[in-house]
Design a protein around this nucleic acid. Structure first.
Lengths: 196, 196
DNA sequence: TCACACAAATGAACGATGTTCAATATCTAT
DNA sequence: ATAGATATTGAACATCGTTCATTTGTGTGA
């Protein structure tokens, strides 16, 4: 057919990414099919390659959207947070992952076909989410060395991520853990106390 | 052909698992091919299904071997450890993951086709590794409540796992982190100090 | 208005995957 | 030696990501 003016390029991109995210949330990364996304949107598989260049390109676009939604959610929760902004952040981390488990996992389980790093525009999206966390940690440690503060922020994100990842992979249930979020928050509190 | 008595069933299993682990270490989970493993071992794809039942079965067997090697490595490092057995454990965690990145990652990125939990025999292998850690944590916290000690052990593993996972996924390099292992050890030390 | 050139959209073709299963080859017991 | 049981095979199937010659729609200049 070739309905060139049904959608602009950016509209097409949005169509594919939103429908792709819907399917990814349903079937997970292993069951994800670019063909199926194209069919549901009403285009052919070839159009996916015209728009995104490759399977990796489509997944990256979907994961970037997930990261943006995550950042937006984190900011919104912080905006209505009380005094304990740290607990709010840890909570937001777990809440978002629990609400969108398969798309959240896809962020970590997808790797470029050539094994190389993700493109810069994608890394910028990751950096923005990390920046929100970094500023909150810095605010709790006034007068601390900015370099050490940034390093601590990275370490705390890794700490929370480890707990959240085990929670979603059911590793914890197998091990009998019942409150991974509380444990993560406790570890973060101890680290911040030691750094004060 | 059908060389029924060339290998016993358990010999066959070992052949497939060891060659499969070799290939997994080379190409990673995404590039792994059960067909190729069979060809390299000199059997047909059908035999994989006779022996392991499915693709999942073969991957589970390979991952179980990786877990057993990991447990063995951890025990060996602890046997020759000095006073600081905690640092030894954290080091062993990172060392094994860094030495076998793709097989290590496969432990976490493989999921059953039906989304269900891994079989009991596999969970037992995981539990044994976890048990080694748990006993070390308990030894450092004499007289503590065993239930709380076990919970702390799980949380500390999650903490180290988060750092190690970020290190192997290059998430840290993107963020500028250079010493993920030192950061993980610092977090563990703070948690243990707070629990004493 | 019409024809031409350009670009978007297509979908068949290709090689590869996991999975199934009838056919075949081999072993074992009688 | 023969028959029954069992191990092994590999073609067949559906599906995947990827490529690209072909078709179709659009915009422009005559």
């Amino acid at each position: 057919m070739g309905r060139r003016s049904d959608h602009t390029r950016s509209e097409l991109k949005q169509l594919f990414v939103e429908e792709g995210r819907r399917q990814l949330a349903e079937v997970g990364l292993a069951g994800f099919s670019a063909r199926d996304v194209a069919k549901r949107v009403g285009y052919s598989i070839g159009t996916v390659y015209n728009v995104f260049g490759s399977y990796d390109g489509l997944i990256l676009a979907i994961n970037a959207l997930t990261l943006e939604l995550w950042t937006t959610y984190l900011k919104a929760r912080l905006a209505e947070a009380g005094e304990d902004r740290i607990a709010c952040m840890v909570g937001a981390y777990f809440e978002f992952a629990a609400a969108h488990p398969k798309t959240w996992i896809a962020i970590y389980e997808h790797h470029m076909a050539d094994g190389g790093p993700a493109p810069d525009w994608y890394q910028d999206v990751v950096a923005e989410l990390m920046g929100v966390v970094g500023r909150e940690i810095a605010a709790v440690l006034p007068g601390a060395d900015p370099v050490r503060t940034a390093a601590l922020a990275r370490s705390l994100v890794a700490t929370v991520h480890g707990h959240c990842s085990f929670a979603l992979y059911n590793t914890f249930r197998l091990l009998g853990e019942t409150q991974p979020e509380a444990a993560a928050l406790a570890r973060v509190r101890e680290a911040l106390a030691a750094a004060s």
